Computed example of a mutant assay.
Amino acid sequence: MSDYEVVLAETYYLRDLVEEITLEDSLDEIAYRASIRLTVTPDCPAIAPGQTLRISGVPYGGKGMKELLNPGVVWECSSSNNGTKHLSVTAYDRTIYLAKSEDERLMQAGQTASQRLKLYAKDWEIKTGTVPDTRIALARSIKRCQSIFSMMLEDLKETADKGGDLYRPRMTPAGLELAKVGGNSTVWELETVEEVSQNRTLEGAVTQVKVLGNQSDDEKLSPVLALVKGETAKYGTLQKVIQDCKIETVAQAQKAAKNALLGMQETFAVTAPDINTIRAGDKVRLNGLDLIVTRATHRLGTPGHMELELAAEAKVRRDFCA
């Protein structure tokens, strides 16, 4: 593991004790997760949940150390002894606090997802880095008891529903940021792969979308704001109904409906030599196709290996907005 460094509490350098490091990232989760297996020696420092931890490594195709997980926090430790004592450590970046903490909030109309993210981060004493303007004005929202992460997802979903770009929160050494899905400057071509599997299905397909407005009269049906057809002639009618109080105009309804349309769903699973800087939400290229990483598992090493789950951006947007 000479290309990687694990530092505990900004004091103890554990490189010589590290047996394995795995980094896992998913669009379904906010926190980057590290699983580390260590050999416990007499000079091994005491490791306990709550301590800070960072992981650095030489980026694929680059030089010098780059921080891959920082700021991180030790979340769980477990030990085993089969003649040699081993310690398994699970650590997350600090966005884990946003996933594990709940609150109730009243958010005013006209705020953007960017503005709200900064408010959440400030209250949880998490500094922010680059937070682009998401531009879309959001509706007034009473967020009942739920995790801060779920509040952020609601804001980002509403932004996408109303025609905005897709974003995901991501912790970096500079602080909590909003990364545009597929907006990475370096798009890696997956040329050398060990295994590729492809799955195509109509399960979950949507070829027609009806968007309903709010109806306060229990004796009447809800008004139809939009009815948008997709590939009904090719795949048949598979209708989804959307009723969301945050959709206030016909134009917003049509955008939300178009975002929900999706025919045959295609996903890929790739095992390949590791490119250790690829994150969930990044765009990659496979056999000429531009695809979005929905889940990434990096088994660090020299050489390392990675397992990626990939999907087209249209599917990612539809699943995100569902």
Rank of each mutant, 00 (worst) to 15 (best):
A256L: 12
P71V: 10
T128C: 14
G50V: 08
G64N: 13
Y167S: 03
S79W: 00
K246D: 09
T271S: 11
S56Y: 09
Y4C: 07
G301R: 02
P223Y: 13
L14A: 08
T134L: 09
T237Y: 00
N70M: 03
P169S: 03
T159A: 00
A179W: 12
R105Q: 11
D319A: 07
A256K: 07
T201C: 07
R170G: 01
E191S: 15
T207V: 01
Y60G: 12
V209A: 06
R279K: 11
G61K: 03
K210S: 12
I47T: 11
Q146E: 13
S88W: 09
E29N: 15
P59A: 13
S216N: 13
M151T: 09
E307F: 00
A269P: 01
V40L: 12
A314W: 03
L23H: 00
G83H: 13
T159N: 10
K143E: 14
A137N: 15
G263V: 03
S78P: 01
D244G: 00
D165G: 05
M65H: 11
R317Y: 02
M151N: 10
M152E: 07
W124R: 15
C145S: 12
V18R: 05
G182N: 11
D155K: 07
K258G: 10
E248H: 02
S2R: 15
E313L: 13
L176A: 04
Y97E: 14
K63N: 15
E104V: 08
N81C: 09
R15Y: 10
I47G: 05
R279G: 03
G230D: 06
A257S: 15
V250W: 01
R295S: 06
G163Q: 04
H86S: 14
N82G: 14
E76C: 04
L27G: 04
A99I: 01
P169Q: 00
T192H: 14
Y60I: 06
P71Y: 08
D282T: 04
G301N: 06
K283C: 06
K180C: 10
L212N: 06
I247M: 06
K63E: 15
L202F: 01
D3E: 12
T237S: 00
A34C: 02
L289N: 05
Y235E: 00
T172C: 07
K315C: 02
A34V: 00
E19S: 09
S88I: 13
E177R: 08
K143I: 09
G72M: 02
K63P: 03
A48L: 07
E309D: 14
E248K: 10
M107E: 09
P42N: 11
P42G: 10
R318W: 10
K220F: 12
V211H: 03
E195V: 12
K162H: 04
R318D: 06
T90P: 06
L8T: 02
Q254I: 02
E10W: 08
E177G: 11
Q239R: 00
V181E: 11
R54M: 11
A280N: 07
V250A: 12
K100W: 04
F149E: 07
G281I: 00
F268Q: 03
G72V: 05
E313A: 10
F268C: 05
S185L: 10
G62K: 14
E10G: 13
D282L: 07
K283W: 00
T302P: 01
M65D: 11
E67I: 02
G213A: 04
A269N: 02
A280K: 01
R299G: 00
R285W: 02
A113W: 05
R299D: 03
D43C: 08
